[in-house]
Write a protein that binds this DNA or RNA. Structure first.
Lengths: 166, 166
DNA sequence: TATTGTTATACTCTATAACTATA
DNA sequence: TATAGTTATAGAGTATAACAATA
């Protein structure tokens, strides 16, 4: 019966939400300049990043993967479409808003990657490539663990049928 | 000379900023209800959390530890002071706004901890307590690695003089 | 009737610059 | 002159509910 004793509180650094926030803040600060120099916001960048790996994705999938609420995504679609970076794709289900990168969008995406990759490499070097990989695995596992806890009926999240890491 | 080949892009799950964001989003969603049921926002909670471990802290320190910009912190101070959860502390330097938890603030803090700790335990159980600890260490190290990269002259961050984990 | 996405709306956080007070 | 914090302000993200269109 492990009762909590208040004078034995986990330290501030041992708070998971805060550690995640601070790590993200530091990491974001490192990469943000590369994104913003191309007049992209971080959420817009996440959408481009997600689309760069897929032929086309619908709003719901993007919202989940990029952690963006539907109303924000609507605005992002409008903005990126106006700039010619994404384009709508025809779809069986007329309710779905599917989009893909345009050639221009892909070119911009690759520019940002080329420019920021040295910083990523430098970080990987300083932190240790294997530790970075471990961290990424732990982060992804943490997310699916929490999601499984939150939605007891669903299993993991049916993005694709993947068992372990995802 | 490891040039980047664009068809060998790191996968979406291998993007550090996105993995951090998604892990944080999931974790936050788990704990937020406990915070909000006491009419606290997450930034307000971080301030209480930080103060719970210290006798008193000034605005600058809190801003850095809690990842809150000074203007936001000003409002948070005002709100928490009005609610009687924190109180200003006299200080040699009249420029500094130092605050501490009141008894009421500490009581509220401990209520939230008591209520949310079971979920934390459940998460630790499901994820593995050692892996959780590893994750926390990696996150804190990542942050100081990035900070060292960003501020080449400063060493790590002179919060306290700590060498390794922090 | 359920699902997908948009619109509307309110609120909070983010970010910068300008200002005040103190050292 | 430098530092700590506040104020002002614009903008972006967060979140909910109500609505439209499609399945």
């Amino acid at each position: 019966m492990p009762r909590i004793r208040n004078n034995e509180l986990r330290k501030f650094e041992k708070s998971l939400p805060i550690a995640l926030l601070r790590a993200r803040e530091a990491t974001t600060r490192l990469f943000k300049p590369f994104i913003e120099s191309h007049d992209l916001t971080m959420p817009q960048w996440r959408v481009l990043r997600a689309l760069a790996e897929a032929d086309a994705l619908d709003a719901k999938t993007l919202a989940e993967r990029c952690v963006i609420l539907p109303p924000s995504l609507t605005r992002i679609f409008r903005c990126l479409t106006q700039r010619g970076l994404i384009a709508q794709v025809d779809c069986n289900d007329a309710r779905r808003h599917m989009v893909r990168l345009t050639d221009e969008g892909r070119a911009l995406f690759e520019d940002v990657v080329q420019e920021s990759e040295p910083s990523y490499m430098q970080l990987a070097d300083a932190f240790g490539p294997e530790r970075l990989d471990t961290l990424l695995d732990l982060l992804n596992d943490l997310r699916s663990t929490v999601q499984t806890m939150s939605d007891p009926e669903e299993e993991a999240l049916p993005l694709r049928k993947v068992a372990g890491g995802r």
